[in-house]
Design a protein around this nucleic acid. Structure first.
Lengths: 158, 158
DNA sequence: CAAAATTCAATTGCGTGCAAATTAATTTTG
DNA sequence: CAAAATTAATTTGCACGCAATTGAATTTTG
């Protein structure tokens, strides 16, 4: 892992510029995606994190809160109220696991399952709005996954 | 009713997978950066958005709330309380523009200016945590800037 | 010049995100 | 088997982030 940052006297004043910072680029892109999704999701009364939960459930129905949290990277403090809102909106049902009463199993309702077919439309609208090809998107995605893994390794198991 | 989008043979079921979505990769990377910054910024009692405001002010001191918002992409609804907290913490001062009483000018305090030299340390810690070279970071950054611009063009000035 | 429109910041309301504390259920252990 | 430790979800408190509203100041215009 040759780190090019060996002699850092090369990091000038300019490095503090927002435009020069990778983290700000990621931060801005995340907000831009959020804004792009908003009008599409508003039609269904969903927020982006709520949509992420549905995406996860469309792949694998009947997950515990903890499992969902691992899938999308949120803790129960965020998920508990979010899931209650998804339940109130009729997209999912929550039920204590009879086998282990500590756990809550979240499953799609009919309404939640029906939304899946519409999700392809959202996906394509976003794909168009992002203005990049599938290959391009795939490259950026993989690069970011690697970056995320690297960043997360800093406080996991060391 | 077929649960498969009829003529969209290029976008399969798999496209709904979280791991396949560019937006989720961006979303996750943003959170990963946030978590990486947190312990570094906690030392100064700062949040990441607050740090962004200081970065902007280190480049160009004495900006209006609106100008800062344009720099980092936040509106006054977010900035007003944030700037009050930055003021309460002693990093900035806020003052109505005598020439145009609608505007509020934000400027660094001595304490805010002093923090600038420490910021290089934060920058380098993050650079190390991201595990990519300056060139690599630059490429990803430019790609994301382009992506952000493309996404924002969908509802901006046209 | 005065009314209307515009601009800027602050405020309100709602939904994340995360840390820390809480509660209930299960597992470990002494 | 009972006490202690662990686990899962909820709750609480704080800080974004954004839409919509408000209020004050300025500009436009009739």
């Amino acid at each position: 892992m040759a780190n090019k940052a060996a002699h850092i006297d090369t990091i000038p004043e300019e490095a503090l510029s927002l435009g020069k910072q990778l983290c700000f680029a990621v931060y801005s892109a995340a907000h831009a995606f959020n804004r792009a999704y908003k009008p599409l999701l508003d039609r269904f009364g969903l927020t982006y994190p709520q949509y992420l939960v549905l995406l996860a459930l469309w792949q694998q129905d009947e997950m515990t809160v903890k499992r969902i949290g691992e899938e999308i990277g949120l803790d129960s403090g965020t998920l508990s109220p979010l899931l209650k809102r998804l339940e109130a909106a009729g997209f999912v049902a929550r039920q204590r696991d009879p086998g282990d009463e500590r756990q809550v199993i979240v499953r799609l309702t009919e309404k939640g399952r029906d939304l899946k077919s519409e999700a392809f439309g959202i996906l394509m609208d976003i794909g168009k709005a992002s203005g990049c090809s599938l290959e391009e998107a795939g490259e950026i995605r993989d690069t970011l996954h690697q970056l995320t893994r690297q960043l997360n390794s800093g406080h996991g198991a060391d």
